[in-house]
Design a protein around this nucleic acid. Sequence first.
DNA 1: ACCTGAACACCGTTCAAGT
DNA 2: ACCTGAACACCGTTCAAGT
Lengths: 193, 193
Amino acid sequence: MAAVRHRRGDVVAKAVEVLDTYGLADLTMRRLASELDVRPSALYHHFTNKQYLLAAVADELLERSLKPVEDGPWDARLTAAATGLRESLLAWRDGAELVATVHAFGLGAEKVDDHVAVTLEDSGLNEALRRVVTRTVLHYVFGHATAEQTHLQAASAGALESGDDMSWGAGQEFTAGLALVVDGVRARVSTLA
Amino acid sequence: MAAVRHRRGDVVAKAVEVLDTYGLADLTMRRLASELDVRPSALYHHFTNKQYLLAAVADELLERSLKPVEDGPWDARLTAAATGLRESLLAWRDGAELVATVHAFGLGAEKVDDHVAVTLEDSGLNEALRRVVTRTVLHYVFGHATAEQTHLQAASAGALESGDDMSWGAGQEFTAGLALVVDGVRARVSTLA
DNA sequence: ACCTGAACACCGTTCAAGT
DNA sequence: ACCTGAACACCGTTCAAGT
């Protein structure tokens, strides 16, 4: 049969397409292979296993959608970093779950750490504290976005019980919780002044 | 063959055992069935699908390990609730991931909301804010515990690169990040006085 | 460098039928 | 009430071999 012949980048691009169209559960090696008109085993020429493929997909999503944070005071930048990351994750079907998993596994998505960490550079906090803040914010963003996206998909498929949707809207909920964390950071920064 | 005949509770108990011994990836319907000396299809008499089984397992874990928070000022209680939840999740193999997933899907683990929420009852915060705080703390605990547990299993299996382990220890990291959030809450409570 | 063919060892779920 | 038997439609991964 006509050997289609792809490069690693083609495979990642198609994987992003499959993810965004059909969801993470349908992003299987076999499904991806068939979309590329190739046998499943061919994928193992490009990636040692599925985890590495997913890591590459997560990195690609972030590369495409995560914008650098603009200048300003540290608290505005920290808030913008968290908000921008959330929007970036929500921009892709199952983006939050994918990036959070890859990040937790330590195979990719390392750029999100920097994305948040750089906003604290002129906060006056020491490095250990900056790391704690960075991780706390990341856990919050990942947790909130994953729950939001999971909840949405659970509602769209299957029984969508209204009344369970927060009267606020998830965006305002997110902002309010984030402000809580930023205030906690501010309490530490102000003791340095 | 000798029909073994189990009740729903037996199935859940065995599932907890399989989870804690072999991990979430090995908690399959087929594996569980074989441990119970039963055909896979028999499980569908007790649970409509795997999601519901997992929800029951998550509830069972929490039932067995999550202790109520002792009396005291609201901030000490909030801290204790979060710390107790973290310890409860870490007490079981893949406990954090399982409970977080079930919770996000809304099929179980609802008791964790109350576990945290009750500590805020005499904080003076209004209900909307108490909900924000509760969710923020839950996201933080789930995120931190899942990352910690995933990282541990990634390190135990496969390449364990040292130097990547935080110089603090995960417990102190957790405590420091939690204090951040609690300080953020305190900033709101103090404006009420 | 990239792919096929064929296999291995698995999954979740359904459903008619048995006791 | 609880289980079997048999099937359906899938998984990830390996590996020798082809071009």
